[in-house]
Design a protein around this nucleic acid. Structure first.
Length: 121
DNA sequence: GAGTTGACGACTT
DNA sequence: CAAGTCGCCAACT
């Protein structure tokens, strides 16, 4: 039993809490979860997420460069850039402008992971 | 059942 | 400083 504390399961929770007009990176989320090198898994997790919740803020997750690498995977209506632009995030050539300013670091903005599990539980 | 890919990032050479 | 290689865990072929 026990809730599945799978890596990608946590990713859903974290990404789901990304504030409006803010973006985060795969590595940041992975790092927050305790494995900075599992950035790839975050991407995979989002891939599944899009199948679960169409309104999932997957468009708020970009790579370290601020590039919308997952745009092509975003088999959706508008396109990540459109959604981001709608939130006030300027995206040019699939690249987020001032991404450093828009960067939302879960390990900084969010409480400790331990606190989370206790709260979620 | 085994091998390869995959929305990336960090470490090593 | 730049380029190359490894690692992450899960899913797809």
């Amino acid at each position: 039993m026990e809730k599945e504390n799978s890596f990608f399961q946590r990713v859903y929770s974290v990404v789901s809490q990304i504030p409006y007009g803010r973006v985060t990176t795969y590595g940041a989320v992975a790092r927050y979860l305790g494995s900075a090198r599992s950035a790839r898994m975050v991407g995979w997790a989002l891939n599944q997420t899009k199948l679960q919740v169409p309104l999932f803020p997957a468009h708020r997750v970009v790579n370290r460069q601020g590039l919308l690498t997952g745009k092509k995977h975003f088999g959706g209506v508008g396109t990540m850039a459109e959604l981001l632009a709608s939130e006030g995030v300027k995206v040019v050539d699939n690249e987020i402008l001032h991404m450093k300013n828009r960067f939302w670091d879960p390990s900084k903005e969010l409480p400790s992971l331990s606190v989370w599990l206790d709260n979620e539980k």
